[in-house]
Design a protein around this nucleic acid. Structure first.
Lengths: 359, 359
DNA sequence: TTGAAAGCGCTAACAA
DNA sequence: TTGTTAGCGCTTTCAA
């Protein structure tokens, strides 16, 4: 009952093309041709080879094949830091695109440790990956990948690098800010406050600029005093509302830099008996389902379409591997997801709006 | 300026051991020995080899090495479904343990599609991974991995399978439930309601049983009518509180099956002017920071220590690869994270308590 | 102390 | 139509 290659103590050794050749009573080359559909073979021989392979449970050794063809159909995915809520959808998108192309992904977590990152790169290069994708928890500029010699294409997804030769895929935060502002203005709001995260985030600056653009393009007044920065938390959202109300300025809307901030803001407004959206409309950012949908009322918010960004990263990596593809910074559009926090919007999804003038 | 192996059009081809041999003026075997510290070599020769390798930027081809040594130092990680909030820490833990052992990880997302899962397994086996770890979004039993012939060890982490030969690592939900119950009782609560998720989750049944055990061991009465199941959402937490209060039964604590439910419950209690923890104490489950810390008051909750579970999975996979390691279902302890939602607990972290009688 | 040669599992060019 | 051979990049005997 025991196959010759199986011993009781050790793990079964996978059969090689040699075993198949022997079993089918043909030569090595014939098996290769038979299994790969190459060369000229009598159909009967091909069938005999195939059935022998099947019977033995033969599975070609990818290592040997890769060695020969100088291509591993494998890419390395380096994430600078621990996985956050942003890296996950990006990662899934990448996997989607790559998996469809039957490429495998090596996962490497840098854990914010440059030494470890370097070690991972070393290992990926030794494994002869066809390409490397770098992601981060935050889209701000980072130092370029260490010790890379151009032997392999590199792509930064939701990560940015000074290197102009590299391709960086980033969400269009500015467009996202415009989307939010435009939506609010079309809903009849004119005095829009902006409660956001720390200004050292590039995204914070871009979203603010986007809001400003929308306001100016609609011929309204841009009021810098209505922009306040804090941390990315619900607590800050609550505090910001308190501060805003304390200044006694009239506002009829708040564009928040994140859904967490928005949730805090909405809670604080409700605590004070201020109706959302009737008295003050609120728009969030991130479309973090678990927060946005649980808020009362549910948040209208900007979605960075991170899964799609990841998919694009995978797709473009395939181009790069094939020697094509562009370089530089590419920004992918955000879209607006309308829920209840600023009334029934006049449109469901304005994903494209960011690309054309608001007029 | 251009190295001989570099052309303008194509990507530079990495140097081989051959190039190094030529550059150092020695034979192939000598380079191998020189670089690996094996064999008997004159120190001067060794140095010459090393410097030649350095100069050329030589990096041994892992494919060739793996082919020869019949070991890839690579494991496949298959997640049945999209990454959820539970798979992420598990995944990080696995990577931690494996990365430390200098093993690489192939990431494969099954996306709930058995065909795709099978295809991934096929590919992993072809790549001759040293082992496969399976994870899921949910710890309930799943069908065993398809088409595996024992050529490679398999480990289920936060996933369960009927196969008794497999090793499954799971959180000790029952212990977690006991932890919560015990904490509440020691805080002086005697009438504990349990608002939880759908009963078709094994975790829901285990957590409930754990609570029951704690209650019985303390000599209190177990009241099944205080257990209500719904969905894993804040909305359900709010609704459950409404229902509970409507029945006019006296309760002084609620143990919630998840932090989301707990947050909904706490919000609903606050809306009604019921003080947490003074009137009713609340304990959550998951220690999902983003929810637990933002709740007012912040949630005391059970942590499944998923990162550690992942780390264990990685470590045990190493054992399995070495031919050792145990089989069967192994449950890893939960711990309690004390915040404010049931008063200042009498202890900070009772991770071990689940393992010994509560007495 | 070093070199030559065989072989890991496979493909492809060339012979038969 | 099939078999033989060389070679992908490396390690490891065995000879020299």
């Amino acid at each position: 009952m025991t196959s010759p290659k199986t011993s009781l103590s050790a793990r079964p050794v996978p059969p090689t093309i040699r075993d198949v050749a022997q079993a089918a009573g043909v030569s090595l080359g014939t098996v290769s041709k038979g299994l790969n559909g190459t060369g000229q073979l009598r159909e009967e021989t091909r069938a005999r080879v195939r059935s022998a392979a099947e019977r033995l449970g033969f599975r070609p050794n990818d290592l040997a094949q890769s060695l020969l063809r100088r291509r591993t159909f494998t890419v390395g995915l380096i994430s600078t830091d621990r996985y956050g809520r942003f890296s996950i959808p990006v990662l899934e998108g990448i996997e989607d695109a790559l998996g469809t192309a039957r490429m495998s992904v090596f996962l490497c977590n840098g854990a914010d440790d440059p030494a470890r990152e370097r070690q991972h790169i070393e290992s990926l290069l030794a494994k002869r990956v066809d390409g490397i994708i770098v992601t981060a928890r935050r889209a701000d500029p980072r130092p370029p990948l260490d010790l890379v010699d151009g032997s392999v294409p590199i792509l930064y997804a939701f990560a940015q690098v000074a290197d102009v030769d590299a391709l960086c895929l980033l969400p269009d935060d500015l467009g996202g800010g415009r989307l939010a502002g435009d939506h609010l203005i079309r809903a009849g709001r004119a005095r829009i406050a902006h409660v956001t995260g720390p200004v050292d985030f590039e995204a914070v600056r871009h979203r603010r600029d986007g809001l400003k653009q929308a306001i100016m393009e609609h011929g309204l007044t841009w009021r810098p005093e209505l922009v306040i920065s804090g941390e990315w938390s619900e607590a800050w959202g609550r505090e910001a509302v308190a501060r805003l109300l304390a200044t006694r300025q009239t506002i009829d809307a708040i564009f928040c830099g994140s859904d967490q901030i928005a949730r805090g803001a909405v809670d604080a407004l409700r605590d004070r008996g201020i109706a959302v959206p009737d008295d003050i409309a609120v728009v969030g950012f991130d479309n973090w389902e678990i927060i946005a949908a649980a808020t009362r009322p549910p948040l209208t918010t900007v979605d960075m379409n991170l899964h799609e960004l990841g998919r694009q990263a995978g797709l473009r990596m395939l181009d790069l591997i094939d020697g094509g593809g562009e370089r530089g910074i590419v920004r992918l559009p955000c879209s607006l997801v309308v829920r209840a926090s600023c009334g029934q919007g006049d449109k469901q999804n304005t994903g494209q709006a960011a690309d054309r003038p608001l007029s």
